[in-house]
Amino acid sequence: MRDIIKMIVVLSIISATTGAALSYINNITAKPIAAAEFQYLKEPALKSILPAYDNSLVEDKIEVAIGEGDSAKTITVYPAKKDGKLLAIALETFASSYGGDLGAMVGYDIEKKRLSGVSITTMSDTPGLGTRTKEPKFIDQFKNVPLDVTLALKADGGGIDAVTGASISSRAVCKAVNDAIGIIRDNGDKIISEVK
C-alpha cells in the first residue's frame, strides 16, 4: 500500500514539475517561434507574389471578419504598401489535398484588379508529384487572373493545365485560389477600407 502511494506521489510530482517547466518555456519561445515561422514560411511566399513593397507585413497585417452566420470567420490579410500607398493584399486559403491540408497564399493587385500571384505555403503531398504544383510552369497560370472567373482544370472544363500525375493536388490549388477569389470579390472593399 505504501508503495503504491509513493509511486503515485512521485510520478505526479514529476509530471506537474515538467508540465510547469514546459509551459514556462512555451511562454518564452512562443513569440520567436511565430516570428521564425513567418520569416521562413510565409515571408518568402509573400515576397514572390506581391509587387515590391516597403512596409513590414508582420506589423501591418490585420484580422478581417468575413461571412455571416455559420460561415463567419476571421482571416488574416497582409497589405503591401509602397510610400504609404496600398498596392496589393495577400491572404492565405486552404483546401484539402492528397496528403492533407494545402495552404495557398494568394496575392491581389488592387490597381489592376487581378491576382498578382499564388504561392504554396504548406503541403504534404507526394514529393516529385504533388509538390510540382509549386513550380512556375503550374503556379504562374494563376497570375493576372481577374476576379470574375472560376478556375478549374482543363479536365474539368476549365483553363488550367494540371501537373501530370498530380490532378488531386492541382485541383486543390484551384479550389484554394477560388476560395481566395471569392473572399476578395465579396469582401474586397471592406478589407481595403480596414487596411487604412
Binding site: S15, T18, A21, L22, I25, N26, T29, P32, A36, E37
Partner: peptide, 17 residues
Amino acid sequence: LVIASFVVIVEMMMKAY
C-alpha cells in the same frame, strides 16, 4: 517523462532560434 520534457524544450528552442 523527464526525457520527453527535455526533448520538447529542445524542439521549441530550435523552432525559435
